[in-house]
Design a protein around this nucleic acid. Sequence first.
DNA 1: TTTTCTTTCCAAAACGTTTTTGAGAAAGCC
DNA 2: GGCTTTCTCAAAAACGTTTTGGAAAGAAAA
Lengths: 341, 341
Amino acid sequence: MKRRSASTLRDVARVAGVSIPTASQALNGRSGVSSETRTRVHDAAHKLRYTPHAAARRLITGRTDSIAVVPGSNMTGIFSDRFYRPILTGVGGVFESAGYRMLIAPAPRVTSAAPQFVRMVRAREVDGILAVGIVGSRWIVEVTESDIPVVLIDNQFPELAVPAVVNDDAWGAVLATLHLAGLGHRRIGFVGAINDELWARETRTGYAQALAQAGLLYDPAIEILVANDVESARQGGHTLLSLAERPSAIFAASGKMAIGIMKAARDRGLAVPQELSVVGTGDSEFALMTDPPLTAVNIHTEELGQRAAQLLLGLIHGNPAPASIVVRPDLIVRGTSGSSR
Amino acid sequence: MKRRSASTLRDVARVAGVSIPTASQALNGRSGVSSETRTRVHDAAHKLRYTPHAAARRLITGRTDSIAVVPGSNMTGIFSDRFYRPILTGVGGVFESAGYRMLIAPAPRVTSAAPQFVRMVRAREVDGILAVGIVGSRWIVEVTESDIPVVLIDNQFPELAVPAVVNDDAWGAVLATLHLAGLGHRRIGFVGAINDELWARETRTGYAQALAQAGLLYDPAIEILVANDVESARQGGHTLLSLAERPSAIFAASGKMAIGIMKAARDRGLAVPQELSVVGTGDSEFALMTDPPLTAVNIHTEELGQRAAQLLLGLIHGNPAPASIVVRPDLIVRGTSGSSR
DNA sequence: TTTTCTTTCCAAAACGTTTTTGAGAAAGCC
DNA sequence: GGCTTTCTCAAAAACGTTTTGGAAAGAAAA
């Protein structure tokens, strides 16, 4: 009596005293069935706790109501990445209200998950794909061959015409740099990431551009590239702060690097923001942990995710693919940036 | 020529010049097919880029090779929760090597996702369920009715006999408190979470127990319960540190609360660890951001996830359900705890 | 009364696999 | 050459649903 095998549409039809197709019609709300039998079928279904077998339904309808989320190779993990996490929250919210499920390959990186994902796509397990971060173009080609809609987040393949949603990293750097310039700083240092990912390059570009815009000289001596972690940035900070003409403000391209800079300042007994202004990039959880709280470029990560999800839903429903979407960050001024002198 | 509809087993059979069942047998490596036809079938399948239709296969085999991950109501979000994130990383690793996929309802909390999940389970979309954090017992009952294996993480229902994997929160508190006692501290304060979740209660229990074990007096005046965030803990810290007989050490039940305490100490000009020792709880990403790095109870989150995943895989393959698994944390001594005086 | 139109339902086919059963052919044995 | 045995393959059934093409029954129109 424990193991009551799951009830099927046939059972419902039998209990309601109708044929299988009639039961199906009734439950799916299609016309051509009297309201009396309709309620009888619904009652039977409810009594038997009937739920349609997903695989059977998929087989005939061709829809899966699921989308696959693919972690790019630059994610530290689909669950552990600080930057991409809130993006996925945004994605999830949109798909939830649309009644979709997210299928997540447990593989930490797309490089290892690639064959698995291609198989998933070919097996028609999903209606669409959301690739988050860096994925190889070879992989994209293989996937798009299957006529399944794909949307990229924080990545672009202009030559392949794959729709994408990206953050305007250069704009963020411009905001940060102009903010510091507006406070009267003339020597604004930059600590960037030494990798060659898009955001690292773009951030650097924005910094240089903003300097020009503010009429400040670009000085390679106060620009330094380090690995994207606290300790490397701390060392980089010491390099910058030990200069004869040390910068009065530093813009760090990530939250971790900003924290490293603040540690370096504290090591040297420099008060923030009185003797050194620091601007970072990142979420508020990070920013509020420092003392004082970090002035930072705020990337609308959740919005990135939402926009991408909406775009993908549109493609699934047959809408034409729009051009890429660019989302601009803004700057949240907290306690680490102050006027020069 | 762009829209080449996906090839099916029938196509493979036709190209190879055999019947459909023979093609199936050959591809699935079953005996009773000559090696010559077998290679012919494989060649055809490869040429046509054949991949079995997942839904069709599921319909007949009954297996889905997927498991559902259910976010508990105390998660801040399946992607955004600091504590549960690494657990899911552990889970993912195990399922990846076992060839399983993870289905994640995008809903942020199980309370909102409950009906959706029950439907998923009833629709036989998954072979097993992993519930992470707090889920309602009513929900569990509803799900277990479907004869689908369920494993809980960081949660327990002794009366329902649902297998679970939990962290030994009390033990962590004992380690932290005894560490401080071992450094010579006689007045060890406690900042706990005011919610009534299991970990909050257990941590408090462990603290009290360790005091007794160390021969120290339990003083309600230096125990305080606050909301689990930085700012609340900061205020709580001020309360504790303004006492006439202020504690020389404080154990905080979470990383956020530990940071709040450190901010309070800095507000009052108290040097850590010279004038106040602080021990927290949490991952190293958090702990390394403070200055000096935080001495903290280290919960083996990833191991929790791995053990739970392995347990669930066992249940799916018919193993008997073992008793609950308890994983003990350890203490990582960093820079915020020093000897008394 | 006969014809035409609705309404309500059901039989059958389809989706793409896997599994079971059985038939034909080649080979071994007397 | 007749008999069994082994090997290879194909025909048919099954999984649980949705969709299509009518059929039966009753009501409206002639």
